[in-house]
């Protein structure tokens, strides 16, 4: 690599840093609102059309939600101002690690390995079976 290429790379890296800083400034105070039930149901309808929602739990911090649909758990998790949706077995969700108010759901996907939900208790007594 020539010196000119290194200079070009360094200048480009500085420009990237400046643009990211500008994006941070421009979006300050404009973060996505916490996830509520209506938004969660809209996303679930988009992602899993036709799925019958038998139970819905929204994370206390508004960063995720979990729904039961038969033997399937439908998971929503915030990423930036977007979200990730995955379908896992209900048994895996019901038996997922729950510690200090955090439910850690294994999604078995390198692109989205885990989803975390802040809940008061888990599993729910009436639907866990």
């Amino acid at each position: 690599m020539h010196l000119a290429d290194l200079i070009q790379l360094a200048v480009s890296a500085a420009a990237v840093a400046a643009m990211v800083g500008l994006a941070a400034w421009a979006t300050r105070g404009r973060g996505a609102p916490p996830l509520d039930e209506a938004q969660a149901r809209r996303w679930l309808a988009d992602e899993f059309p036709g799925a019958r929602i038998e139970g819905l739990w929204i994370g206390a911090d508004g960063l995720g939600a979990l729904a039961r649909s038969g033997e399937t758990a439908l998971v929503l998790s915030r990423i930036g101002d977007g979200y990730v949706a995955r379908r896992i077995a209900w048994d895996a969700a019901a038996s997922a690690q729950f510690r200090d108010g955090r439910l850690s759901l294994p999604l078995a996907d390198f692109g989205a390995p885990r989803a975390e939900l802040r809940l008061q208790a888990w599993p729910p007594g009436d639907l866990a079976a």
């Binding site: 998790s77 990730v84 995955r86 996907d109 390198f110 692109g111 989205a112 390995p113």
Partner: peptide
Amino acid sequence: HNLGAFNPLRVAFHE
């Protein structure tokens, strides 16, 4: 199936 990370390495190599 959206990604659950912003890490460029995960973005580049997950598939």
